[in-house]
Design a protein around this nucleic acid. Structure first.
Lengths: 128, 128
DNA sequence: GCGAAAATTGACTTATACGTAAAAGTCAAT
DNA sequence: ATTGACTTTTACGTATAAGTCAATTTTCGC
């Protein structure tokens, strides 16, 4: 098989621009192969992009996403580095839990907003 | 009672700068009273700031936060406006649910990262 | 009512995450 | 060899959400 994707195939699949994928490469998040100058994206690259976009959706910065990715490719060898990373992971986890709470609360609030809209619509409907 | 807060009390409580709160005022998110030129923040303003920061944490833009806030203050009177708002609410809800999924997945991944770190640490520890 | 501390304003700067334009290269098909 | 669709690189531009700085007020404690 040895399937690969072109850059535009992936931009279409994920709804991002070519600029975005090249930017991610510049930032060292992905490293597609080349045939001449043209990028060849392998399934592994594709999965990586999915991860990057997931990180992006929850508000991670490029640097943070890079840190997470790096653990897999190139796990740090020094104890100090490992401990720093674990501290960061712990911090991120707290942050994500906070975010999850925020989302729950905001979802509840959106329900209120919707209800307020419906009430208002009913008022208008009755009045006319 | 008629308690109020100064701007710095709130910056300390919420860990933001005075410039940030003034920025939110410029953007029409809050409207603290004035005694002379000095802002007086009432409990209602304080709650509003909590909401704004919650919105910020989950990645809403200022404009989106403003839209949500406006519904309470000044619910739209036209049917068209109401329907537009409800469509937005629905969209936001989908977005938040996606984000919640992303967070769950990333939390799971952070567990993996941590485990990888621990394994690596154990290896190093044994080796030396 | 005075002086330090706090608050205000405006103008400018910053960081992140791309967008956009220009100019040239690639490649398959005609 | 040319067309057309796609891709590349480089370089500069932009929007959002504040931060920084400096120059004034304003307020508070005594």
């Amino acid at each position: 098989m040895d399937k690969f994707y072109t850059i535009t195939e992936l931009t279409r699949e994920f709804g991002v621009s070519t600029r975005t994928l090249r930017f991610y490469e510049d930032e060292g998040l992905i490293n597609p192969e080349r045939r001449g100058r043209t990028r060849l994206f392998r399934p592994a690259d594709r999965r990586l992009i999915q991860e990057i976009l997931r990180g992006r959706r929850i508000g991670f910065t490029i640097a943070e996403i890079r840190d997470i990715i790096r653990v897999y490719k190139d796990p740090p060898g020094e104890v100090g580095q490992l401990e720093m990373l674990m501290a960061k992971v712990s911090e991120k986890r707290d942050e994500l839990r906070q975010k999850r709470r925020d989302i729950e609360e905001t979802l509840a609030e959106l329900d209120n907003v919707e209800e307020a809209c419906l009430t208002r619509l009913a008022e208008i409907g009755v009045g006319t």
